[in-house]
Design a protein around this nucleic acid. Structure first.
Length: 880
RNA sequence: GGGCGAAUAGCUCAGUGGGAGAGCACCUGCCUUACAAGCAGGGGGUCCGGUGUUCAAAUCACCGUUCGCCCA
């Protein structure tokens, strides 16, 4: 065959074509073969709000590496793709879009709004799919799902109703986090806390029926309008006598009681705290314990409620200033101090959260959390790296009830109906009439469920649950979940408890946790900073393989990484290196027909096969441990270091020579290693590896690399002798190059070299002569054995027991050479001293393992020999 | 306040008990018929500080410093 590949790799010419080839041949399809061992991943469904960012690129690349590897290993492999409807996020986007036309969602109405949201979904869903194609992911697109599709919706309703029937879902007036901008309740974990400078205002409340007053401190003076008590610690001597007495709430002129509660920290501020049950989670709890009145001072819109007298309708921040001003006027402000405290913000829009009491739906968490804690404690689900187990348990063990209702329209509508007679119906089927009064005037609850409610069911809803489908039977539980640490509590934890509750099983066996992709300066990529890097742009410019390799090698399990173009370029260069090595091999494989490995391999051939076997072994072991970055580096080093720098260079001797038999053997090994290397590389760089593989003169003619077997670590290829001999040869070549460079002989200028070695090495050296000459640019090579006289005017080096001489009659600067050797001697002596110290340590000899002692002894011998030879050479030179 | 993590070459980071590594950057020399996105050679480190465990510590434990994240 003739090969005419361009010298620079062009991903654009290759990637789309190859992806289409995979799609056309249905290579991503999971057959679901009975009895075959499965490997399943469900994708963390990207939000249909926008486009994929670098974090998605990393997340999906990791999954694709694992999937491609396992597929090649022969597993019945399913990677199930899909997208998430992303309730609040998408709703916000659509509302923004409406706002640009001067409309609100109420202007268009629920039905039309939902139609717009679906349109939005269609558009962005298409965009996301295109991005995933570009990245090269091998998802089974025939099984793609969406959290709001018919099947997922049925699963959601089944779970909701079932939990309700078990008493694990309830509706009630409790403290929730309210986002005044999104105009909805959100769960605790959707609140982001940020430490902010603030003030602590000390306010004096006058006693009623007793002389004196009591001072309370607050960061939110405006909430005092809703105070219904002042609390002190029961043991606090300063206030004990006041418990049960009353104070006058200024501005509102309401009488409120002084109560005693353990919660109060006597050492904070004055030791007395104002209690606003409607606007503080802790105060709410205290209010329940003491049966306090709940007075809402701030409404859903973030403005003061109509009951707040002159403050009614005022924005909460404006009210804060006015309240303080008014209190000052009454001389009731004791002092205002600088203070720093954490303020909650909405995860979606960064608006300050308002804690308030509201009628919402909740999931009772304790009974669900327990089994979810147990499966992780018992090791049934393993987090990688292991430290994330503690993060998970820490969260699960301190879990509080989950507020699941959202006052938006885009999502799974809560399956509860209210009859005019007061009856509430929670049902799997939409009810026709009220079971209590028979009336037909039923109103469905307008709210929808938290997005994470549906994603919590993702591993089984996508496989067909609540139906008993073959896929569910075959592929569940899934093998591994790949996700960023930032959504362990949002998603991972919830999948675990939902799966335990409804599948009576774990959703996945392992959780592979990765970090965030940050910008080059280590900052989180964000829209507001504008420092995000679009994966598509990188793919456009450098190719998907390059992006994938950059992300994978930049990643250590669970750690964040920085995205830097220097690294992208390094990966691009690697791709080009692979391309050119393959070009070289292909150019030399004309008329070649693969027919397995030839017998009677020479040293180089045995060596590269040994290195290949080792690379296969290491890569496989590292992949098993989810050390993808290290695995990719092993492949990198094998290809660039062993294969390109050494084997290809060595192979040129026979390829350009006249011995046909050697030539054929070399071709066979080049083919064997390149073909195997493409398989090893494929999970990391699927496009270039498939492209090259398709160019190989394979006997079978068709097929695809993606469906080829993973290279097995081959014990019979391991060859210790070849390894050791080649180590010596390579070291010799390096030291000759080093000597040449030391005195500035350019590569183009051939040099003469004399090797002086004990007889046992001469055979090896003679066999390698022509290779050493080529790789070290040596013209004339002379061998002498230890008995013969050595050259005097020469630079020297020592490799094992072989002395290397670079004769330089008349050129050599004796003094300089002696000082060079002197320096080397110092290093040797320092190392030797360390070894001697170890070996003369009784404890070391007694307690260290045998192989370590053996190693040290060898080292001692080696260094001792080197020292002697250096001294001898120096003495000779000094005589001259 | 509770939990977790990080600190290693100029930069970005691998490396979890036995001779300090990579990529990039830097210096020197090279268009050597696969590749200048390349080849060859080189310089450069108190592995944050301290204490301890161990025959042996970048690695394990404890304390401290600095930085980051999560939770309250």
């Amino acid at each position: 065959m003739t090969v005419n590949l361009p010298p620079v790799y062009e991903p654009k010419e290759v990637e789309d074509k190859i992806y289409q080839f995979w799609l056309d041949n249905n290579y991503f399809y999971a057959a679901g073969e009975e009895g075959k061992k499965t490997f399943t991943i469900v994708i963390p469904p990207p939000n249909v709000t926008g486009s994929l960012h670098m974090g998605h690129a990393l997340n999906n690349t990791i999954q694709d590496v694992l999937i491609r590897w396992r597929r090649m290993q022969g597993f019945d492999t399913l990677w199930l793709p899909g997208t998430d409807h992303a309730g609040i996020a998408t709703q916000n986007k659509v509302e923004e879009h409406l706002a640009s036309e001067g409309l609100s969602r109420y202007d268009v109405g629920r039905e039309k709004f939902l139609q717009k949201a679906w349109d939005w979904k269609e558009e962005y869903h298409g965009r996301i799919l295109k991005q995933l194609y570009k990245l090269g992911v091998s998802c089974d697109w025939s099984r793609e799902r969406f959290t709001l599709d018919e099947g997922c919706s049925r699963a959601v309703r089944e779970v909701f109703v079932s939990l309700y029937e078990q008493g694990l879902i309830y509706r009630g007036n409790y403290m929730i986090n309210w986002c005044p901008r999104c105009h909805t309740a959100i769960s605790d974990i959707e609140v982001e806390h940020e430490e902010k400078p603030s003030t602590l205002t000390h306010i004096r409340y006058q006693g009623i029926g007793w002389e004196g007053s009591i001072v309370v401190a607050t960061t939110r003076p405006e909430t005092m309008l809703g105070d219904t008590a002042v609390a002190v610690h029961p043991e606090d001597e300063r206030y004990r006598h006041l418990v049960g007495k009353k104070v006058l709430l200024p501005l509102m002129n309401r009488e409120i009681p002084i109560i005693a509660d353990e919660y109060v920290d006597p050492s904070f501020g004055s030791g007395a705290v104002k209690i606003t049950p409607a606007h503080d989670p802790n105060d709410f709890e205290i209010g329940l314990r003491h049966d306090l009145e709940v007075i809402k001072a701030i409404g859903d819109d973030g403005k003061m409620t109509p009951e707040m007298g002159k403050y009614a309708g005022m924005d909460r921040y404006e009210a804060r200033e006015r309240v303080v001003a008014d209190l000052k006027e009454l001389r009731l402000v004791e002092k205002i101090e600088e203070y720093s405290h954490a303020v909650g913000h909405c995860q979606r829009c960064s608006t300050e959260i308002e804690p308030l009491v509201s009628l919402q739906w909740f999931v009772k968490m304790k009974p669900l959390a327990e089994p979810a804690i147990k499966v992780v404690r018992d090791g049934k689900i393993r987090f990688i790296p292991e430290r994330f187990t503690r993060m998970y348990l820490n969260w699960m063990e301190n879990i509080r009830d989950w507020c699941i209702s959202r006052q938006i329209w885009w999502g799974h509508r809560i399956p509860a109906w209210y009859c005019s007679c007061g009856e509430m119906i929670v049902s799997r089927e939409d009810p026709e009439r009220c079971p209590a009064c028979g009336g037909k005037d039923l109103q469905q609850d307008p709210d929808v469920l938290d997005t994470w409610f549906s994603s919590a069911l993702w591993p089984f809803s996508t496989l067909g649950w609540p139906d008993k489908t073959p896929d569910l039977e075959h592929f569940f539980p899934t093998s591994v979940l790949v996700t960023g640490y930032d959504i362990i509590s949002f998603w991972v934890a919830r999948m675990i408890f939902m799966s335990k509750a409804f599948m009576k099983d774990i959703p996945f066996e392992e959780v592979c946790v990765h970090g965030l992709v940050r910008d080059a300066l280590g900052r989180k990529m964000s829209k507001s900073l504008g420092n995000g890097v679009d994966p598509l742009e990188v793919i456009e410019k450098y190719g998907a393989d390059t992006l994938r390799f950059t992300l994978i090698t930049g990643q250590a399990p669970g750690n964040d990484q920085r995205f830097r173009y220097e690294n992208v370029e390094a990966s691009r260069n690697f791709a080009n290196k692979i391309w050119n090595a393959s070009r070289f091999v292909l150019m030399n494989l004309e008329d070649f027909q693969p027919n397995g490995l030839p017998s009677a391999l020479n040293r180089h051939q045995r060596w590269i096969l040994d290195r290949f076997a080792e690379a296969v072994h290491q890569t496989t072991e590292l992949l098993k441990k989810y050390e993808l970055g290290e695995a990719a580096k092993v492949v990198y080093e094998f290809i660039w270091g062993d294969f390109c720098d050494w084997f290809i260079e060595l192979s040129k001797v026979s390829l350009y020579g006249n011995e046909d038999q050697e030539k054929e053997k070399t071709k066979a090994v080049l083919y064997y290693v390149l073909e195997g290397t493409m398989r090893l590389l494929h999970p990391f760089m699927p496009f270039i590896s498939e492209e090259i593989w398709q160019h190989l003169p394979r006997g079978d003619g068709d097929g695809a690399l993606i469906r080829s077997p993973w290279p097995e670590p081959a014990e019979q290829l391991s060859d210790r002798l070849a390894r050791e001999e080649m180590e010596l040869v390579m070291q010799l070549i390096r030291s000759i190059r080093n000597l040449r460079s030391e005195i500035g002989i350019p590569v183009g200028k051939k040099a003469a070299v004399i090797l002086r070695a004990p007889a046992k090495y001469l055979n090896l050296l003679r066999q390698e002569e022509v290779f050493i000459q080529r790789l070290a640019w040596v013209e004339q090579m002379t061998f002498i054995d230890n008995a013969e006289r050595k050259p005097s005017q020469a630079l020297t080096a020592l490799v094992d027991e072989v002395e290397v001489y670079l004769p330089l009659e008349g050129i050599i600067d004796l003094a300089q050479e002696i000082s060079r050797l002197e320096k080397e001697l110092q290093v040797v002596e320092k190392d030797l001293a360390k070894v001697v110290a170890k070996l003369s340590n009784e404890n070391f000899l007694q307690k260290a393992p045998g192989d370590i002692i053996e190693k040290e002894k060898n080292k001692q011998e080696e260094l001792g020999l080197k020292r002697e030879k250096l001294l001898a050479r120096m003495a000779e030179l000094k005589k001259l």
